[in-house]
Amino acid sequence: MTAVPTEFPAGRRFGDRIGDNALYAITAAAGAGVVVLIGAVAWKVFDGSSLAFSDFGLGFLVHSVWDPVHNEFGALSFIYGTAVTSFIALLLAAPIAIGIALYLTELAPRAIRETVGALVEMLAAIPSVILGLWGILVLGPFMLNHLEPWLQSFLGWIPLFSGDPSQKGILSASIVLTIMAVPIIASVARELFVRVPAELKDGARALGATRWEVVRGVVLQYTRAGLGAAVILGLGRALGEAIAVTQVIGGTVNIPSSLFESGDTLASRIAAQYQGSASNLQTSSLFYLAAILLVFSLIINLIAQLIVRRFEHTHIGAS
C-alpha cells in the first residue's frame, strides 16, 4: 500500500496562499473602492460648492433669488419645488403602489400575476427622457384641457387649485414623478407582502376575516416598517429625478401657491443650466444645489436601507 501524501508539496501551498491573498486583495480593493467612491462624490460636490458657500453661506438655503445677471443665487424656490412635487408624488404613488402590490399578492389570478407584475416593473424601465417627452406631448395638453379645468371646477376655491390651467407646472411634474415612483414602491411592497407568514393570514381567515380585513389586520400591520422604507425609497427617486421634471415643470424661479403654476426643482435646475453658467459663482451655485440634493438623498437612502435591514433582521431572521 502506498502512502497517501498528507501534505501538498510546499511550493504549491505557497502558490495557493499567494493566489488567495491576491484574490482577497483585489476584491477587497474593489469593495473599498465602492466606499471611497461615495466619499469622493461627496467631497467633490462640496468642494465645487465652496465658492458659493463662502459667498452666500447657509443663507443660500432661504433665498429664492436666482439672478445670473447680478450674481445673486439662492435655493429656496428649488427646495420648495422639490419638496412639493415629491410630496404630491408620494401622496399619489404610495396608495396606488400598495394597491398594486396587494392586488398582485392577494387577488390576481395566478395566470396573470406574473404578466401584470412584469408590466408594472416595465414602467420603471421607461427612460426618464421618454417620460419627459411624453409629459410634453401627451400629459401637458391633457392637464391643460382636461384635468386642471376639471380640478378647478370642483376645488377652485382652494388656493392650491387657483390660477389658470397650464401645460407645465408643479402638478404635471408631480404626476410624472408619481409614474416613476409607483413601480419602485410597488416592487418593494410586493416583496414584503410575499414574506408575510401564511399562518398569520390563515389565522385571520379562520376567525372569519374578509380579505380586506386580513390585509388590514395582518399584512399591513406586519409590513408597516418595510412599507415606510418602500415609500422613502420612492421619495429618493422622486427627489433626484432631473430630466423628466425639467420638461414638464416649466423651469421658473418661483414659489407658487397654486399647483398649476410653474416652478423648478433642485435636480431640474441643475439639468437645465448644465451649460448656461455665465460665471464661476453660478457654476459653484449649481454645485451647491447638487450638494443639497446629495445630502437629502443620502439621508433618505440611509434611513430607508436601515429600516429595510432591520425589517429583514426582525421578521425574516439572519439570512
Binding site: 465602492v34 466606499v35 467612491l37 461615495i38 469622493a40 462624490v41 467633490k44 460636490v45 465645487g48 425609497l233 429618493g236 427627489l239 433626484g240 429625478e241 432631473a242 435636480a267 441643475i270 439639468a271 448644465y274 449649481l286 454645485f287 447638487a290 440634493l293 446629495l294 438623498s297 443620502l298 433618505i300 437612502n301 440611509l302 430607508a304 436601507q305 435591514r309
Partner: peptide, 17 residues
C-alpha cells in the same frame, strides 16, 4: 449599504461629480 447608497444617488449628481 454603500452599494445601495450609490444606487440611490441622483444621476444628475453623478454627472456633476
Amino acid at each position: 449599504l454603500a452599494l445601495d447608497v450609490i444606487n440611490g444617488l441622483p444621476t444628475i449628481v453623478t454627472g456633476i461629480f
